[in-house]
Design a protein around this nucleic acid. Structure first.
Lengths: 149, 149
DNA sequence: CATACGGTCCGTAGCAACTCCAGACTCAAG
DNA sequence: CTTGAGTCTGGAGTTGCTACGGACCGTATG
């Protein structure tokens, strides 16, 4: 195991601290989402600021932001002025997306749960699920559901 | 436009009736999810049973079933015996997945909506979103949330 | 000193489920 | 005969990773 004298850490330690898998960290570097960290010999040596950026990215991913959106957020967070309104816009787009997905999923949940219940109570004729999937009429979605974005 | 005398239809008509995009229909054929339909000369001619299968697939996709699950559902629907219990199992797995995703999304929704609200009411110090994304503590998830499946 | 072991490196390929493109046809209407 | 719309095939691109193979590197142990 390689040792680093300063506060810098190996990639596996960076992965542990930021909860990003090693492969993902290297991936972020490849696509230019994070700058290549300095090297200790041949090995990457992550400084505190590198770890902070990776943590930022991971938390944004947990909120479902796409990598492009994260790029924008990072740029705004670095610019430091007038950022709040801009970040708010990005976050609101994301929030609308989340709500649309929840609505979609809730519609699915409703149909599936109802169908399964009909399965459990006497399946007199055909399997209700086959019926649902075979019928000609399309499934009903809640009106604000966004199937195609 | 090519004309078919029987009940068979062109791919664009099949797309219209099943609400599967043309490219997707050809994709399903490529991966063996649907059998190659007969040809009228060089063009695909979709029979009613082909349309039924495509419609089945599309409705299952709308309920969020993966293509592998759909393959299983189609096999069961075709076998015709003892299917209900098996299909129910597949549907229940899917339902559990939907519920887990809803829980994940609800957690995201909660954090984002709350943060945005803090943005709107006086941003005294820093942008709350930056704060959330920069803080060291990981976001709280509801306990039954399944981050990694 | 040799060597085994674990960590790291790089490049590439694969996943889901499409989606889009180029370039070549085919067919029917005007 | 030309025009235009539809169709064909094969392949590449999308998103966000994840896995793999084979080569190094550094340390601990025999």
């Amino acid at each position: 195991m390689v040792r680093y004298d300063k506060g810098d850490v190996t990639i596996s330690e960076a992965a542990r601290r930021t909860a990003c898998p090693i492969e993902t960290i290297r991936y972020y570097e490849r696509i230019g989402l994070v700058a290549p960290p300095p090297r200790n010999g041949k090995y990457r040596a992550y400084r505190p600021e590198d770890l902070a950026r990776l943590g930022f990215i991971r938390r944004a991913r947990e909120l479902g932001f796409g990598l492009d959106a994260i790029r924008a957020l990072l740029r705004l967070a670095a610019s430091g002025s007038e950022t709040c309104a801009n970040m708010q816009m990005i976050a609101e787009i994301r929030l609308a997306d989340i709500r649309a997905r929840i609505a979609d999923l809730a519609a699915m949940e409703h149909v599936l749960a109802e169908t399964i219940t009909r399965c459990e109570f006497g399946n007199d004729a055909a399997c209700p699920l086959i019926e649902v999937l075979s019928q000609r009429v399309p499934l009903i979605y809640s009106p604000e559901s966004s199937r195609r974005r």
